[in-house]
Amino acid sequence: MAGDRFDLEPSIRAFVRDLGISPARALRRAELPADLFTRQPIELSVPEYYRFWDALGAEGGADRDLAVDIGKAISVEFFSPPMFGALCSPNLTAAAQRLAVHKPLIGPLRIDVDAGTALTITCVWPPGPKPPILLAATELIFWVALARIATREQIRPARVTMPSPPADPSAMESYLGARVRKGSRSSITFTAADAGRPFLTENEQMWRVFAPELRRRLSDLQASATIADRVRAALLETLPAGDPSIGAVTHQLATSARTLQRQLSHEGTSFQTILTRTREDLARHYLTNGDLRTTDIAFLLGYDDTNSFYRAFKSWTGTTPDAVRAG
């Protein structure tokens, strides 16, 4: 992800009200400015974004499945430009690929798209606190709502997984038409036939109108990111590949190690500091989300062996990975 602030579309205020939730009460519960919805653009940090969704869940009440209600309430008029661009696509695979590029504009997560024998869309959340269950569920439900709106068919996913499914997933499963299984990642899979089903909303001419503005906004977001942000984003790519070196990062960022260290120094940090913090954040994320083995976590953090990971984790936290997992 390029930066740490994300846009809420102006239509969110009307959308929240249509769900029967008071926008003012939701903002107050989330400890956000009362005039937030009157600002242009409406920008939130990751913690603020999570608090907003937590507040929606609380204001929605315990007697309803708000994620399902959101899926049913989604309509063309509430789509943001990136999402409208997805609707203009020829099919769900193309829509997912387009939205994956522009998702940083509208939410604190990355979308990985695997269009092999089937279409699997995986939500990759930032390291650190887990996203609210409502938000995680809504992100998956969105894809089914999009497919149904665009094809006018009752599309059902072939598989749905979540690290922390809702305590009672029955309403979500009834809407999706599929079981919600516990898995290491939030993902949704569609058959190749459904992924390639033509969108009746396809409009290439309209997409050509939207695309330049989306590219400009994405470029502005990337330009506003600090060097530390960019290093952290690069590490999220290079660490799972087993390379924690500054060389791997400078290759990603097309710069030299000397230039990168100087730029980081101007921001009051260093490559080693960012590497350590990123590893610690990822380690905590892996230990508290899913059931990865410690050896797998060590590998994903770029360590050659488990003992090196144990020693590093103890130096960061004063405790062991096993203690954090048990807690």
Rank of each mutant, 00 (worst) to 15 (best):
S270C: 03
G290E: 05
E280S: 13
A283Q: 06
E267S: 12
L287W: 09
S256I: 03
P244G: 00
Y303G: 05
T295Q: 12
S308W: 06
S245Q: 06
I274K: 03
L301S: 00
N289F: 00
T295E: 13
D291W: 02
H251F: 09
A312D: 12
E267P: 09
D296F: 05
D281P: 02
A241M: 12
H285Y: 13
S219R: 15
L235R: 10
R293V: 01
L236G: 13
R293P: 02
R277A: 14
D229Y: 03
L253D: 02
D304I: 00
N307P: 00
L260K: 05
Q261I: 00
E267K: 08
S245D: 07
F271L: 12
T276E: 14
T294I: 15
H266Q: 11
H285E: 08
A248M: 08
A257V: 00
G247S: 09
R311M: 04
A228Y: 01
H285C: 10
G302A: 07
T295R: 11
A312M: 01
T269Q: 02
G290Q: 02
D305M: 07
T294F: 15
T278V: 09
E280H: 11
A312T: 08
L292T: 05
D220A: 14
R232C: 09
D291Y: 05
A233L: 03
D304Y: 06
R232F: 06
F271G: 08
L301I: 01
S224F: 03
T259G: 01
G268F: 03
S219K: 15
D281I: 02
L275F: 01
H285Q: 11
L236A: 09
R284V: 14
G242D: 09
I274V: 09
G302S: 07
A257L: 03
Y303T: 05
A298T: 04
F271M: 11
A283W: 01
Q272A: 13
Q252S: 13
Q272F: 00
F309K: 12
L235K: 10
G268A: 06
T276F: 10
R293W: 00
P240A: 06
D296R: 08
Q272I: 10
Q263H: 09
